[in-house]
Simulated assay, not measured.
Amino acid sequence: MRIVILPLTVAAAAVAFATPALAQDAAPSAVPTGIEEQMAGDSITVGVAAAYITDYEGSNDYRFTPAPGVLATIKGYTFTLLGNRASVDLIRDNPGPTWDLQAGPIGLVNFNRNSNKSIDDRRIRALGELDTSIELGGFVGIGKTGVITSPYDKLSVTVSYRHDVSNVHDSAIWQPTINYFTPLSRKAAVGLFASAERAGRGYARTYFSVDGAQSLASGLPVYNARDGWKNWSLGVIGTYALTGDLLKGWKAIGGVVYRGMMNDFKDSPVTSIAGSKSQWASALGIGYTF
């Protein structure tokens, strides 16, 4: 069984693995001795979730798949692995209410339509399997800790760029994202995010166009998709400590995302006839922080 991740951004999905946080209503005098030192120290969270996602991008059929994750902060540098996506923030974070500059490499393994075994719709299977693409690039962003509810909530904005280096779709994807994270208590935290993706001509042609031969095989009409804004997403994601607190121990992880397809990606028969412009994804799992 291949492993993928529901379409969460790296920054927003990291909320599910719970960056260290305190209660939003905790007064300074209520902070336990040594807690600030713990928050400034190294932290590693590992987890796995059962994700409920579409069979392919634009599908109206769904399936379950495992989604592993790792979030590690070592000496202020953060590494994130979430299913098929990995990134490293090469700008060191500082503890406490402060500004946070973000920049580093990002990579993604795109499994979209690489196996007909995971696709129910016979028309999409008839279009043919596609190779797995490797998308590499980078991201930049800025965040602010201590914004609205407490000294520990965080608002951030990032922009990432990826390009296919495996010559599958041989084009670029831009992704701006805004997310907000806040602790609700020593045991619970929640995050909200909004994101969008702009895809290049090669991506549109590979995944959303239908040529003459594919039309004869599938019964879908011929369609030539153009580049542009591909989709927008809104999501909520959270975590609850089952043992200890958000700084250490076992925790439950969950999230729900809505994605709306746009422009030629919405109008393509891959989406409008065989699939749906409305996409949902969800995940529920468990993690451990040490």
Results as ranks from 00 to 15, higher is better:
115 S>R: 06
107 G>R: 03
203 Y>W: 09
228 G>W: 05
172 A>F: 08
36 E>M: 10
257 V>P: 01
147 V>N: 01
12 A>S: 14
39 M>Q: 13
66 P>W: 06
135 E>L: 05
274 A>N: 04
145 T>I: 13
287 G>P: 02
95 P>D: 14
114 N>T: 14
44 I>M: 10
76 G>M: 03
25 D>M: 04
257 V>D: 11
229 W>G: 01
163 H>F: 07
86 A>D: 07
83 G>E: 01
14 A>G: 15
246 L>R: 02
236 V>D: 08
26 A>D: 15
179 N>G: 02
95 P>W: 07
178 I>M: 12
26 A>S: 11
164 D>H: 07
243 T>N: 05
100 D>H: 12
60 N>R: 12
278 S>C: 04
178 I>R: 00
95 P>R: 06
57 E>Q: 11
149 T>P: 00
40 A>E: 12
48 V>Q: 09
278 S>T: 10
262 M>A: 13
171 S>M: 06
256 V>E: 11
190 V>M: 12
209 S>N: 04
64 F>C: 07
198 R>A: 15
161 Y>C: 04
290 F>S: 04
289 T>C: 03
80 T>K: 02
53 I>L: 10
130 L>E: 15
119 I>K: 00
66 P>K: 03
158 T>Y: 03
93 D>H: 07
96 G>P: 01
223 Y>I: 03
160 S>R: 01
230 K>Q: 14
27 A>F: 11
137 G>F: 11
45 T>W: 03
155 L>C: 07
262 M>R: 08
197 E>L: 08
263 N>L: 08
